[in-house]
Computed example of a mutant assay.
Amino acid sequence: MIGEFDVGGVLLSSVFVTGVIALACAFVLRRLLTWAGAYRLVWHPALFDLALFVILWAAIAALPFPAPLAR
Rank of each mutant, 00 (worst) to 15 (best):
L33G: 01
F27G: 04
V17F: 11
P66G: 09
E4T: 15
W57R: 09
F27K: 05
D6G: 08
I21E: 03
A36Y: 05
G19Q: 12
C25F: 10
G37D: 03
A62S: 07
G9P: 09
V10F: 12
A36F: 10
W57I: 02
C25T: 12
A26H: 03
I55N: 02
A22S: 15
S13H: 09
I2T: 15
V20R: 12
R31E: 08
P66N: 06
T34L: 05
A70T: 09
L12I: 15
R71C: 02
R30E: 13
L63Y: 06
A36T: 08
L69N: 04
F48M: 07
R30I: 03
A22G: 11
A61Q: 13
P68A: 11
P66Q: 11
L69H: 10
E4N: 15
T18Y: 01
G19C: 05
V28G: 07
G8H: 03
H44F: 11
V54R: 09
S14V: 10
A46P: 01
L32P: 00
W43P: 00
V15Y: 10
I21Q: 08
A38P: 01
G9D: 11
F5M: 14
L52T: 03
I21K: 06
L29C: 02
L56T: 07
A62T: 03
L41P: 00
P66K: 06
R40L: 08
L11S: 14
L50M: 10
S14A: 14
T18K: 13
A26S: 14
A38K: 07
L63V: 10
I60Q: 03
W35R: 14
I21C: 11
F53M: 13
L41G: 00
A46C: 02
F16G: 01
L56M: 13
I60R: 01
G8A: 07
A36N: 04
L63R: 02
F53C: 09
G9M: 13
R31P: 01
V17C: 13
V7S: 13
D49G: 13
T34S: 00
V42F: 01
V17L: 15
G8N: 10
A22Y: 12
R31G: 13
T18I: 04
A51L: 14
A62R: 00
G19M: 06
V7G: 04
L32E: 05
F16D: 12
L56H: 02
A61E: 11
V54M: 14
L50I: 10
G9C: 13
L50T: 08
